[in-house]
């Protein structure tokens, strides 16, 4: 309000009036910010309601059977997403099986002082960059570099362990296993960043106490630090699960988009996201409705996972 001291009030306007306008202006700015903030929740709600409403016609025509039907037939207008739900869950599970131990391991390694800071910082940066790579570029790389690279391993698995149902089909490259492997790398940054953050945030006394009692460094880590940071780690895993289930381009490019349920991980499959991405382009009216229904299911799955993750992480932060 320095302007008031320097300049005389404008003609025809008393000082009070000017102060009033400033106050009104100030108030409206406050409310603008409030609207902006509440608008975030509004957008979230809008997305949920909008997708729910547009799925309504399909919900009415296909009902709950949509979840248990295994056909996707635009010609006869029979739609069901059981194979896609199966593929979404299986590929996410493969990704988690790999990413949980590796992610927690890396988080520990980077939160301890095994490496000097000058080495640790670039490594942490590189891991953050994995999350920055566009998924369509990862998909391109997966098709032309990773799949040819993995083929001998797949053949080996099939030839030697083909009697296990998990590897019982001739490998085709595009498969749930390929997708799971790539997803595991893509969700690692999420697990590492949040787990590492909660490990670093632990009070020093915990570590010092354990070491003073004679525990080795890894006994301290495994029995004291990881249990103490457990909720942060679990939260990071939930977030990673949400990412894995919703990842679209990599799924559409690497999973093979085949509408089937087999126990074999070497067989092509489909996920809900890959179904939407690969079918939407040439979909007619009925099929678009069915795809919106599929989108609603994906949204419900990811919302549950993400909300749980947030609750777990927030709870952890409040304890601190």
């Amino acid at each position: 309000m320095s302007s008031l001291a320097e300049h005389s009030p404008r003609k025809g306007q008393s000082l009070e009036k000017q102060v009033d306008t400033v106050r009104v202006f100030d108030q409206s700015f406050y409310w603008l910010a409030v609207i902006g903030a509440i608008g975030i929740g509004g957008v979230l709600l809008w997305i949920a309601v909008q997708i729910g409403l547009s799925a309504l016609p399909a919900i009415q025509s296909y009902g709950v059977d949509f979840l248990t039907t295994t056909t996707w037939d635009p010609v006869r207008n029979i739609y069901g997403v059981l194979p896609q739900i199966y593929g979404t869950l299986i590929s996410a599970a493969i990704a988690l099986v790999i990413a949980i131990p590796v992610g927690i391991g890396v988080a520990v390694f980077l939160s301890e002082n095994f490496l000097p800071n000058a080495v640790r910082t670039p490594i942490a940066l590189a891991i953050e960059l994995i999350a920055a790579v566009p998924s369509v570029v990862i998909g391109l790389w997966g098709i032309y570099v990773l799949i040819p690279f993995l083929r001998p391993f797949y053949n080996f698995l099939y030839e030697n362990f083909g009697w296990i149902p998990l590897f019982s089909t001739p490998p085709r490259g595009n498969s749930l296993l390929t997708l799971g492997l790539v997803l595991s790398v893509m969700i690692l940054p999420t697990i590492i960043a949040i787990s590492r953050g909660s490990l670093i945030a632990l009070p020093r006394d915990l570590r010092q106490g354990a070491l003073a009692l004679g525990a080795t460094r890894w006994e301290t880590i495994l029995r004291v630090l990881i249990p103490a940071a457990f909720s942060g780690i679990v939260g990071s895993i939930m977030l990673a699960l949400g990412r894995a289930m919703g990842e679209t381009m990599v799924a559409a490019m690497l999973v093979g988009n085949s509408n089937q349920i087999t126990p074999s991980l070497l067989a092509p499959g489909a996920t809900i996201a890959s179904l939407i991405a690969s079918q939407f382009g040439e979909a007619g009216r009925e099929q678009v409705a069915a795809l919106l229904y599929a989108g609603l299911i994906l949204m419900i799955l990811t919302l549950i996972v993400n909300i749980l993750a947030e609750i777990i992480i927030q709870k952890f932060q409040n304890v601190e």
Binding site: I40, I47, I276, N306
Partner: peptide, 13 residues
């Protein structure tokens, strides 16, 4: 939560 919503759903929206 909004950050966790799959990008494809932003497309559907």
């Amino acid at each position: 939560v909004l950050a966790g919503i799959p990008a494809i759903l932003a497309g559907l929206f």
